[in-house]
Design a protein around this nucleic acid. Structure first.
Lengths: 206, 206
DNA sequence: AGGATAAAATGACCACGGTCAATACAAAAT
DNA sequence: ATTTTGTATTGACCGTGGTCATTTTATCCT
């Protein structure tokens, strides 16, 4: 096997797959936060150093595992169509909100990796964030929402508000349900065709 | 001295002050990320355990130090008045944006502590975030902005967009200047009195 | 087959945040 | 002054992420 000029042995792929698989198992049992590198390597039957030959650091593994789950959720979201209103929109974000707030640790990792760390080493989580924008954009495009702002901008705003709601009310109402109401408030103001206010200034974007 | 039923010796306050002072010095010299607890206690002339008798963990010290700086910046922002337009608004957020993006590590700490960690152990950074909302709200209230949405909501949105811009473009254009343009785009869509779009649906908030 | 070469795996080791039973110290009670 | 009580400090110790010189293993070459 030969990837990018560097020869990769079959063994390598097997080891990496085993590390990932064992990590998944441990996470399913104990959650993300409790994952220890030592446990993973013991379960995979390799030495500690081997782990770091396959992943830059523990966070790189997390990036991959969490990114994979986000991707699965996005696959489902991709199939949703016919958003009728804000409530609908928020409801379909539900699974994403639920997963992102399933553990404080998970939310922190996601935030830390949602932007590209260094130029162009864009990881799995950052990729899903870009994809999320696309999904939101297509939802908005086919829904009864304002048209005076580019769809891409609207989509990025939805993401921004979602993060805001999750970050500020993380513990207040831990169930993801508690996030829906405030998020709907924001999105109503952000997405709906505006009702012109009394004082009709005619400002424009700079 | 007696705080909350617990007697606090003068010695305690002196030690804590010394820890904070030495930490500040080290940070001024090497930045936040490079701060090591061992260095702080050595400089302060106390044992390691003493540090943790005064701060729950290293992050608690960071929360305090970063919170203090944010507070200073907010003091200055509080004095600003007469926001004429979006560009103005973003310009006056400048110092805050600059500080929050001065180090990747600082931004991460701020995000992690911007929401209350557990109910009602709201720390310095979380406090400044609440204060930030108030400042934005008063700016918006006296500016040429939309009135069809409560000022508080608008202010929270400004914060959300600011975080979004910082998170997504952290390295892309590291100078805080690069943040202004995208932020202005978002805020124009968020804050300005809307120009009714062609298709005038008359949706309302759910 | 038997080297030669490069990739992969190893595990002792380090850095650093954090803990805790033991000790030193200050203040109050006698 | 001495004892008592509770606060503040200590430093050896631990857990865990991460490193790297060395060793093992695969692949290629003749």
């Amino acid at each position: 096997m030969n990837i990018m000029g560097r020869i990769v042995q079959k063994r390598t792929l097997e080891t990496r797959a085993r590390l990932v698989a064992e990590a998944e198992k441990l996470i399913d049992r104990n959650g993300f936060e409790a994952l220890r590198v030592e446990d993973v390597v013991r379960a995979a039957g390799v030495a500690k150093g081997t782990f770091f030959a396959h992943f830059r650091d523990k966070d790189a593994l997390m990036d991959r595992l969490i990114g994979a789950r986000l991707d699965t959720i996005l696959d489902a979201m991709d199939l949703e169509t016919g958003i009728r209103d804000i409530r609908d929109l928020v409801a379909r974000m539900g699974p994403m909100l639920t997963f992102m707030t399933c553990e404080r640790y998970v939310f922190d990792v996601i935030l830390r990796y949602s932007g590209a760390a260094a130029q162009e080493d864009i990881g799995p989580i950052a990729t899903t964030f870009a994809r999320q924008i696309d999904v939101f954009a297509s939802w908005i495009e086919h829904g009864p929402f304002r048209r005076d702002v580019p769809v891409a901008i609207l989509a990025e705003g939805v993401q921004a508000f979602a993060v805001q709601v999750m970050a500020l009310r993380f513990c207040a109402l831990h169930a993801a349900q508690g996030l829906h109401a405030p998020l709907e408030t924001y999105l109503a103001a952000w997405l709906l065709p505006p009702q012109p206010s009394a004082r009709s200034s005619r400002n424009t974007a700079p």
